[in-house]
Write a protein that binds this DNA or RNA. Structure first.
Length: 276
DNA sequence: TTAAATTCCTGTAAGC
DNA sequence: TGCTTACAGGAATTTA
C-alpha cells in the first residue's frame, strides 16, 4: 500500500513531467463516481479544465498538485490507487476512474481497484473547511521534526504505540508497513502505551522511523500489493523488509519466529525477543 | 477527549 | 476444478 515513501517516489517522478503542463480536459469514468469527494463530480470536471500545473508536492500520503488560480488537485491513493503518466492512445486498464488529458498528448490516469482512494479539488481553506482534507501531524522526514516533538505528542496518549504511529494527525505518512518496520528497528513492543516511553526510547523510535522511511525512498517504495510507480514499475523495498509480512518467519536479528498481533485493526508483526 | 469498533471495496489465497 | 470464505488495509464514521 502506498505510504510516505511510495507517494514520495511518485511525486518525484511526476514533477519534471507535470510542472508547466495544462490539464486540457478531465474525464470521470464509472458513475456514481467512487473517488471524487469534493466538489460534486460535474463541478470537478468543469472547473479543472484549462488549468496549468504550477507545483507538485506531498503532504503525508496525499499528493498535492497546485494549479494556477489558487486551487489544488489532491490525490490520495488509499489501498490500491495508482497515478500514472501514460500516452493518450494506450489501452485503458480496468478500474481506471479518472483521466486527465495534458497539453502534450500524455494522460495522467487514476486507477483504483479497491476504491479506497479519493480525488479533491479546491483551495486549501476550502478543503480543510469541508472536512475532506484532514489536519495532519508533522512530516517525519522533515529536518525540523525532532524527537522532543514526538515525545510531546506521545505524552498523553494511552493507546498502543502502533495505533498512535498510524494516526495521521500525530505523524503524517506512516502506515502499517513502516510502523512495523520502525518499531522493529527501534526494538520497541508495538502494544505498549505510547505515553509509557522514556525520552531515550522516543529518540530511538524517531531515528528508526526516519531511517526506515529514508531507505524505503531510496529503494523506490515497497510493492507488497498493488503499488506501482508513475511508470507502472514496482519498487524494491519489499525485498528489504525486516518484519512486515513475515509473521512466523525467523527474526533476522535473533532467529526466533516473528509474532503477530492485531492492533488498531491492523496485523502487526514483531519479534518478542528483540522488541521489549 | 480519547480510543476502539465498524464500514467501505475487490483481488487473492486458502480451504473444502 | 470450482466454489465459498477469510483476509488484506487507510481513514471516515460510529459507538463507548
Amino acid at each position: 500500500m502506498p505510504e510516505l515513501p511510495e507517494v514520495e517516489t511518485i511525486v518525484a517522478d511526476l514533477r519534471p513531467h507535470l510542472v508547466g503542463r495544462i490539464i486540457v480536459r478531465c474525464e470521470l469514468r464509472s458513475l456514481p463516481h467512487p473517488v471524487v469527494r469534493y466538489p460534486q463530480p460535474q463541478q470537478f470536471v468543469d472547473s479543472i479544465a484549462g488549468l496549468r500545473i504550477d507545483v507538485i508536492g506531498r503532504r503525508g500520503k496525499f499528493i498535492l498538485i497546485a494549479l494556477d488560480g489558487g486551487r489544488m488537485l489532491v490525490v490520495h491513493l488509499g489501498m490500491s490507487g495508482q497515478l500514472r503518466l501514460i500516452d493518450a492512445g494506450a489501452e485503458i486498464a480496468n478500474h481506471t476512474h479518472a483521466i486527465f488529458d495534458l497539453d502534450n498528448g500524455k494522460q495522467l490516469r487514476y486507477r483504483d481497484p479497491r476504491r479506497f482512494g479519493r480525488l479533491l479539488l479546491g483551495t486549501e481553506t476550502e478543503l480543510l473547511d469541508s472536512g475532506t482534507f484532514p489536519r495532519l501531524g508533522p512530516e517525519p522526514i522533515d529536518p525540523g521534526f525532532d524527537s522532543e516533538e514526538l515525545y510531546r505528542r506521545f505524552r498523553n496518549r494511552r493507546a498502543p504505540l502502533k495505533a498512535v504511529l498510524l494516526d495521521q494527525t500525530t505523524i503524517a505518512g506512516v502506515g502499517n508497513i513502516y510502523a512495523d518496520e520502525s518499531l522493529h528497528r527501534a526494538r520497541l513492543r508495538p502494544d505498549r502505551a505510547a505515553r509509557s516511553l522514556s525520552r531515550k526510547s522516543v529518540r530511538r523510535l524517531h531515528d528508526a522511523m526516519r531511517e526506515s522511511l529514508a531507505v524505503a525512498i531510496k529503494n523506490r517504495g515497497s510493492s507488497v500489493d498493488a503499488y506501482r510507480d508513475a511508470w507502472g514499475e514496482v519498487g524494491s523495498q519489499q525485498e528489504e523488509l525486516l518484519v512486515y509480512g513475515r509473521a512466523g518467519e525467523p527474526c533476522f536479528n535473533c532467529g526466533r519466529p516473528l509474532s503477530v498481533l492485531r492492533i488498531a485493526g491492523r496485523s502487526t508483526v514483531f519479534c518478542r525477543r528483540c522488541q521489549r
